[in-house]
């Protein structure tokens, strides 16, 4: 485009063709790789059954005297998300400072911090939960630890970005007042990033509530366990009420969290 804009250069067109060929072959490869023949013939009826289950859900399941009900399941789920988020909100702080370029003297140092964070992110929470089950046994606690560890990856990255955006001035002023490193941190850095930290933590809490609903699938507590039982036993009306419970809970959590986040920043 730097030369004569009126003349279309041929190599540009060739490049477009190359891109097109790559994309088309990617899709051919993908479509041929997936086995489509194994679909159950009763898929339609099952879908209808699930939808009907959601329209006429098993209301009795909301509260049962013996405690194995939707209400308790959702409370567990929220508790897992809350504790997991809380743990990661603190554990990620040192990583965040490590990964932010303006808090390190050397570029490679923050690079290592960033790599560790992205490494943690790649480890899915569900795999972590499987490993924690080996350590602390099945149950909600394994789920909490898994969420707590996994969330460090994302929260650490977001925190680091908040730290990188800060104004260096106040830190310089504090240094000039004779403050030591910790005092500079506490008086000049933390006040600048705290609202962001809180907002990101809430955002992560929203995500963790969603994640906590599935941890039960592998036995790490929460509503996932009864859901997978209901699916296995084809109890569609119970599947329906559990799905409704998840949708409502997550929506309410999102609304509250959004409201608070808007007030913070």
């Amino acid at each position: 485009m730097k030369n004569n804009p009126l003349i279309r250069r041929p190599w540009l067109r060739i490049r477009w063709w190359l891109v097109a060929v790559v994309i088309v072959s990617l899709y051919v490869w993908s479509f041929t790789g997936i086995e489509f023949s194994g679909i159950r013939e009763n898929a339609g009826t099952v879908t209808v059954a699930i939808l009907q289950g959601m329209i006429s859900p098993d209301w009795d399941y909301v509260y049962l005297a013996d405690g194995e009900d939707l209400l308790r399941g959702m409370i567990d789920t929220l508790a897992i998300a809350l504790l997991g988020t809380f743990i990661s909100a603190f554990l990620c702080i040192p990583f965040a400072f490590w990964a932010s370029t303006n808090m390190n003297r050397w570029k490679w140092s923050s690079g290592i911090g960033k790599f560790i964070l992205s490494f943690i992110r790649t480890f899915p929470e569900i795999v972590m939960a499987i490993m924690f089950i080996k350590a602390v046994g099945p149950g909600a606690y394994a789920g909490i630890l898994a969420l707590g560890l996994h969330s460090i990856g994302m929260l650490g990255k977001l925190y680091a970005e908040a730290i990188e955006k800060i104004d260096r001035g106040p830190a310089e002023a504090l240094l000039a007042c004779g403050a030591n490193r910790l005092q500079v941190m506490w008086y000049a850095v933390i006040p600048q990033v705290l609202p962001e930290f809180m907002s990101y933590t809430l955002y992560r809490f929203e995500i963790n509530v969603r994640s906590a609903t599935i941890l039960g699938i592998i036995g790490a507590g929460g509503i996932g366990t009864p859901l997978i039982f209901a699916l296995d036993s084809r109890n569609w009306s119970r599947v329906g009420i559990i799905l409704l419970g998840i949708i409502i809970t997550v929506s309410v959590v999102d609304m509250i969290s959004n409201y608070v986040r808007r007030k913070i920043v």
Binding site: G38, R210, T213, L231
Partner: peptide, 27 residues
């Protein structure tokens, strides 16, 4: 907003019930 309340693994569990085991449910 409603669709986004359900995590992918939960969708997958439901689609496995619908389509049976295999990659189609995952897709």
């Amino acid at each position: 907003n409603l669709i986004r309340t359900i995590p992918d693994l939960l969708f997958a569990a439901i689609f496995v019930a619908i389509f049976g085991l295999g990659a189609v449910a995952g897709v």
